[in-house]
Amino acid sequence: MAWQGTIVFFDLQTTGLDTKSCHIVQLGASCEDTNFNRYILPGIPIEYEATEVNGLTVSYGQLFLHGEPVRTVSLYHSLKYFIEYLGSFFCPVLLAAHYAWGFDQIVLMRVLRKFSLFEQFEQVVSGFVDTLPLSRKLYPQLKWFNQPYLVRCFLEGEYNAHNAVENSKQLEELFWNYWEPYNEDISEFTDWIYALK
């Protein structure tokens, strides 16, 4: 039986990999051909390794993507817009990301709490699905389980690692068009919001 609720696929591009201190520089999401995308000017430098992945740099108070300036929105307003976007679907939704439990979920929860937006967030979101362990359960025979490999394996396409929206769209396509997990599999790899308070 197909999952009855809404699952929104999301991805963060950040200044680095430290979940306690990194800043979000792009917040992207995809659900049913409706995308969300906000770039955010970080308050700390973007690490070289992060720039190598996402192509984002800061110069003279301006965010650039591969040398081209991009329009930014404050983190607070980006989060508010994101909550509004999530609220436009049949709620509460599940948020899905590849390695959600180890990174995206942790960073997003930290900044929501920092801006006292968690209560608004939990009105529209019921939990986080981590598609990394889900993919391991569904396809134990695979050699690797990172998203670039899964995209090449199933979609036979190129992985656009430096774009949060493209990552979200590709994950959504993998999830619904190729994996089609059972409800119990989705539930098994979901962190429910009520348990994260």
Score class of each variant (00 low, 15 high):
Asn167Gly: 07
Asp191Ser: 12
Gly157Phe: 02
Tyr81Met: 12
Val58Asp: 00
Asp130Trp: 04
Gly5Arg: 01
Glu173Ile: 14
Ala164Asn: 08
Ile193Phe: 07
Ile193Cys: 12
Glu188Pro: 02
Leu155Met: 13
Ala2Gln: 03
Tyr99Gln: 08
Val53Ser: 06
Trp192Ala: 07
Gln62Leu: 04
Phe128Pro: 04
Tyr194Asn: 08
Lys80Arg: 14
Asn37Ile: 07
Leu108Met: 08
Thr51Glu: 01
Arg110Trp: 04
Leu56Pro: 15
Phe154Asn: 01
Lys80Ala: 14
Val107Pro: 07
Thr6Ile: 04
Phe128Cys: 04
Gly67Ser: 10
Leu65Ala: 06
Tyr76Trp: 11
Ala97Arg: 08
Val129Cys: 04
Arg38Asn: 10
Phe9Arg: 12
Ser168Val: 11
Phe128Thr: 06
Leu134Asp: 09
Gly157His: 01
Val151Arg: 00
Phe90Tyr: 05
Gln13Glu: 13
Leu75Glu: 11
Leu196Arg: 15
Glu158Asp: 15
Phe118Thr: 02
Tyr159Cys: 15
Pro148Val: 13
Tyr194Ile: 01
Gln141Met: 09
Asp130Pro: 03
Val151Gly: 00
Tyr159Phe: 15
Leu86Glu: 02
Ala164Leu: 05
Ile186Pro: 12
Ala29Phe: 07
Lys114Ile: 13
Leu27Cys: 01
Thr57Cys: 04
Ala164His: 06
Phe90Asp: 02
Phe82Ile: 14
Lys137Asp: 13
Trp101Arg: 14
Leu108Arg: 05
Lys169Glu: 14
Arg38Gly: 11
Ile44Cys: 01
Ser126Gln: 12
His162Met: 01
Leu174Asn: 11
Pro42Arg: 03
Asn146Met: 01
Thr19His: 13
Pro92Ser: 03
Tyr76Cys: 11
Ile106Tyr: 13
Gln120Ala: 08
Asn54Asp: 03
Gly157Ile: 05
Asn54His: 12
His23Ala: 05
Glu158Met: 14
Thr6Phe: 00
Gly28Asn: 06
Gln141Asn: 09
Val151Ala: 02
Ile83Ala: 11
Gly87Val: 09
Ala96Tyr: 08
Gly5Thr: 00
Gly61Gln: 15
Tyr139Val: 14
Asp18Lys: 05
Pro140Asn: 10
Glu32Asn: 15
His23Trp: 04
Leu132Pro: 03
Asp11Gly: 11
Lys137Met: 14
Asn146Leu: 01
Glu32Ser: 15
Cys91His: 03
Val125Asn: 08
Leu108Ala: 07
Thr15Lys: 00
Thr72His: 09
Met1Ala: 03
Asn54Ile: 02
Thr131Trp: 14
Pro181Ala: 00
Val165Lys: 10
Ser59Glu: 09
Arg113Gly: 03
Arg152Val: 04
Tyr48Asn: 13
Thr19Tyr: 11
Pro140Asp: 06
Glu47Asn: 14
Gly16His: 05
Leu17Asp: 12
Phe36Cys: 06
Ala29Arg: 08
Asp104Gln: 10
Tyr159Ala: 14
Gly55Ala: 00
Ser187Ala: 10
Phe115Asp: 00
Phe36Gln: 03
Glu166Pro: 02
Cys22Gly: 01
Ala96Leu: 10
